[in-house]
Design a binder for these strands. Structure first.
Lengths: 231, 231
DNA sequence: CCTTTCTTGTGAAAGGTTTCACAACACTGG
DNA sequence: CCAGTGTTGTGAAACCTTTCACAAGAAAGG
C-alpha cells in the first residue's frame, strides 16, 4: 500500500499533500503559541516557501476552513489538521531492534510530542532482553505476537540489520500489524494492505553527493524559487 | 537549492530518479555478489516494484548503458551509477550534535559502506567536548570553521535540538559548506546555493497515522500495483 | 544470411501535480 | 448600503512524471 486516498469529493490526495500538512501543522503550532488569531494562505506559504495556491489547494481537499477576506483561524485549522493526520489521538508504537538507531528512537522526544508513544521494545540479543530503556523492558522476539496484541500496538518501527529486516517485517505483518516504519537500509516487500514507509539516511547523503558532483561539474544549474510572494 | 539538474541533452532529472538510482545501485551490488553478468530492465523493475520503462527512462538520462536483446552489464552499470551518484569517491562528513541521534549516526555502518566517513564531531556541551566516540574526538562548536576547513569537510549532518538548528545551519553555511543533512524536526532556511535535505522521522509516522485513520474510516481505498510485470 | 527472439532507447500519450486567474464572498469605513 | 480591499476556493492551464508502444539493434540457430 503505497499511496492513493480520495478526498470527500473523490479528488486524489498525494503523498506530498500529506507531508505539507505535517509542516503546516508545525507552523500553526508555533503561530498558536504566538497568539495569532488568523493566518492567510499567503503568509503560511511564505513561511513554508510554497505558493499560496498550493496551501489553499492542499487544504481544499479536506474542506473549506478559511474565511474569504480574512484567512484561516489558526487554532481551528491546527486542530483540523491534527484530526486529518490522526495525531489528535494516542498511537501505540513498538520498536524492534534496540541497537544504535533503536536506542536513539526510544529517547526521541518528538515522537511523544506528536502522540506516538513507544510502548514495547524487542530484540533477539539475550544480553539486551529484560534490560530497561527509558522505563521500557526489552522483550524477546519470541513473544512478539503475544505482546503486540496485549499492548494493542498500531505501528511498528523496525531498526534491525538489513539482512534480517525482511524476515522480521514478515513476522510483524503476520501478527496483524498494518503500519510499519523501516530504518533498515533495504527496500522491504509487504502485502499491499500494509502501510509501509522507509527512512534511509544513506540515500539522503547520496542525493547530496549527487548534487555536489553536479554542482562541481557545471558550477551553475541552481534553481531559484520562482514564487516567493513576499508580503 | 532544492532540485533541478539537467541530463546531457537538457532533459530534467527529478529527485525521484536520483532516489531510484540509489535503489538500483543497492540491487546491482547484490546481483554482482551473486555473479550475474547482465540484467534486463524487466528483471530490475520486478525487484524494485517498478515498470521496465521507468528503469530504462531513468538510466537514459545519463547515457545508454545496455545492449539491445541482452540487457545491462551488472558490473559496469553499478560502477556507472556509483559515478553518477558521486559515491565512487570518499566524502568527508562532520556531525554536529552528539546526542541520541548523533551518537547513533556515528555508529551507523551504512554511511561508511557508501563512502561517507564521519571525520568530525561537534557539540557545545562541555561534558561532551573532548570525549571520544568511535575514535573521533568531540570538538567545541567554537572551533567549527577552523576544523571544517582543516578536515576538508564536504557534508555536514545536523542532529541538534530543533530550537537551535537554524542558528547552527547558518553558522555552517557561513563556513562555506554547500551540503547539509538535517535531523532536527524543523524546516531550515538556507541560501539557494546550498543543498539541503531533511530527515524527519515524526513526519513519516504522521503519514502512517493518516493512512491508518483513512483505512479505518473507509476500510477500502487501497491501491494495487498496476504494473507487476512478473517474469 | 535469414528468421526468430529478445531487449533497449525513446518519442508520444496518459496521468498527476502545481500554478494561474478569477468569481464569490467577507469585512471596513464612509 | 455601497465602494473598496482582501482573501478564499476552484476550474482551467501549465508543467512534470510515468507509461505505452514500437523502431532499431543484438544474438542465436539453422
Amino acid at each position: 500500500m503505497t499511496e492513493g486516498w480520495k478526498a470527500t469529493d473523490n479528488r486524489k490526495i498525494s503523498e506530498s499533500t500529506i507531508h505539507r500538512l505535517s509542516h503546516y501543522y508545525r507552523t500553526l503550532s508555533v503561530l498558536e503559541r504566538e497568539d495569532y488569531e488568523t493566518i492567510s494562505s499567503r503568509e503560511l506559504a511564505r513561511r513554508e516557501k510554497l505558493t499560496p495556491a498550493q496551501v489553499r489547494k492542499d487544504l481544499s481537499f479536506f474542506g473549506s476552513f478559511g474565511t474569504r477576506g480574512l484567512g484561516y483561524p489558526v487554532k481551528d485549522l491546527r486542530a483540523k489538521i491534527a484530526n486529518i493526520l490522526g495525531i489528535d489521538r494516542a498511537w501505540n508504537v513498538a520498536l524492534i531492534g534496540v541497537g544504535n538507531i533503536g536506542s536513539a528512537m526510544v529517547s526521541y522526544k518528538e515522537f511523544v510530542k506528536q502522540g506516538f508513544a513507544i510502548k514495547l521494545l524487542f530484540d533477539n540479543d539475550q544480553r539486551k532482553i529484560g534490560s530497561n530503556h527509558k522505563g521500557i523492558i526489552v522483550h524477546d522476539m519470541r513473544d512478539l505476537e503475544k505482546e503486540l496484541k496485549a499492548k494493542k500496538i498500531d505501528i511498528v518501527m523496525i531498526a534491525v540489520p538489513a539482512t534480517v529486516a525482511q524476515n522480521i517485517v514478515d513476522d510483524v505483518v503476520r501478527c496483524g500489524i498494518r503500519a510499519i516504519l523501516n530504518f533498515a537500509p533495504v527496500k522491504l516487500k509487504v502485502a499491499d494492505n500494509v502501510f509501509y514507509r522507509s527512512e534511509n539516511m544513506a540515500m539522503e547523503l547520496e542525493y547530496l553527493s549527487f548534487a555536489l558532483v553536479n554542482l562541481a561539474n557545471r558550477s551553475g544549474g541552481k534553481k531559484l524559487d520562482k514564487d516567493s510572494t513576499n508580503s
